[in-house]
Design a protein around this nucleic acid. Structure first.
Lengths: 128, 128
DNA sequence: TCCTTTCTACTACAACTGTAGTACGACAGG
DNA sequence: CCTGTCGTACTACAGTTGTAGTAGAAAGGA
């Protein structure tokens, strides 16, 4: 639900969301614990979470004194809009160029393209 | 040159840069003219250009009263860092997942993967 | 020379972000 | 009951971005 077109999140925001996506629901403390390697104050985490809530990206549930958060957009939604954004502004909307870039920058090996295709083919059946 | 690691630009900034990349050098007016469909005031263009200059992303040359700008980073640099950023935060650094995403979201057809690979292969042989 | 057009420099301001401190209420251990 | 701890709410502040107005200088036309 709530597959809004434009869901652009910052790196930190995505990091928090990833915790929610993985766990389904998480308290502020849970999120802070998982991101403890960043050395952020827990109030920082709380602030970002509150802002995401205000923005409608996550929802908040209260249990006693604690707040539990749950994502309102899924990872695919965010990927969709952010990849589309990058594609549009830097690759003239041409995904082939993006793939070519990945290969040239050695982010992916040419042979892996076939691998991806095979993997997808076996997963989907209405494909040619 | 100046292939700094982190060159993250906003959509608007990229749009300005694209003009510079295409033309090599362009005055504020040139850039404004090419982006006139956005309905921005030319002072807006000038402001953004100045900020990019301050940030070291472009350089400025003065000719009489006019300022001419020239990119100090090339498109590949920006693509590199921005794609890497997206890859890292949203795809766990796994480019195969990104390619799979592109196919699944119909940004690219499975058959095009082979096409890209072929295209790159033939380019490779011409490469000096 | 004087008025008008054209640029740039400077200033402004609202959003959003990263980051965190402080205050205050609730709860658990003595 | 008292006190420290914990968690949230609120406040703060600097940096970036989008957006643009205004002032002042320069150049051009009459």
């Amino acid at each position: 639900m709530a597959a809004r077109a434009d869901i652009t999140l910052s790196e930190l925001q995505i990091a928090l969301m990833r915790v929610l996506w993985r766990r389904g629901e998480a308290s502020t403390a849970d999120v802070a614990a998982e991101l403890s390697d960043r050395g952020l104050a827990h109030t920082t985490i709380a602030t970002v979470l509150t802002r995401l809530e205000k923005r409608g990206v996550v929802e908040q549930r209260r249990d006693g004194r604690q707040l539990y958060y749950r994502a309102l957009v899924d990872e695919a939604d965010v990927r969709r809009s952010m990849v589309a954004g990058l594609l549009g502004s830097l690759f003239a909307g041409d995904a082939q160029q993006l793939v070519a870039h990945l290969v040239q920058e050695s982010e992916i090996a040419p042979g892996d393209l076939a691998k991806v295709r095979r993997r997808l083919a076996s997963r989907e059946s209405h494909e040619n």
